[in-house]
Computed example of a mutant assay.
Amino acid sequence: MKRQLAEQRGRRAEDEAARLLEGHGWNILARRHKTKVGEIDLVAKREGLVAFVEVKWRQRAADLDLAIDERRLARVAAAAESVAHEYATDGEDIRIDVILLAPGSQPRHIENAWMP
């Protein structure tokens, strides 16, 4: 039951993040793209740029600072690298973004969160 609730919250958070990106002119190309090395929550494209977006939702805004770490970002980066050629087909730049969400707080969009 706990796992199902977490899954539902995750999907709602991804929907909210997609709406946020779309409101800023991004086109959502994919949701929950599974690769051999991990899953990418959202793939978005805008003006010569493709963003592979990790979405994190927490019950409390105070917990958002601990929601993402180098290990998780490295996994997203590896997944993005494995499929970048599918999305960046016209020489677009690519980056890894993070969107952090919690009830009662403004969404935080961290652009270019992964810089190895």
Rank of each mutant, 00 (worst) to 15 (best):
T89H: 12
L42K: 08
A88S: 14
Q8S: 15
H24C: 06
G23Y: 04
A84H: 06
V55E: 11
R3W: 14
L21K: 09
R71Q: 10
R9E: 13
H85V: 04
G38D: 08
G10L: 10
A77S: 03
G91I: 07
R19D: 13
A78C: 09
E111D: 00
A80L: 03
A84I: 00
M115F: 07
L73C: 08
A13M: 01
A77D: 02
A74P: 00
D69C: 02
A113I: 00
W114V: 00
R75K: 15
H85S: 12
R72A: 08
I94F: 08
G23R: 09
A77N: 04
P107V: 00
S105V: 02
L29D: 14
K2G: 10
R60E: 05
L73E: 05
A79S: 11
D63T: 05
L66V: 07
I68K: 01
G91K: 12
R11N: 14
A80H: 01
V53T: 08
K56Y: 01
I28P: 08
K2E: 13
E54Q: 13
L101H: 05
A79I: 04
F52N: 09
A113R: 01
Y87H: 08
L49M: 09
A18H: 13
M115C: 07
K45L: 09
W114Q: 01
V37S: 15
E22S: 15
D63A: 12
A67Q: 00
H24N: 13
L5A: 14
R95C: 05
A30S: 13
L21W: 03
L20I: 03
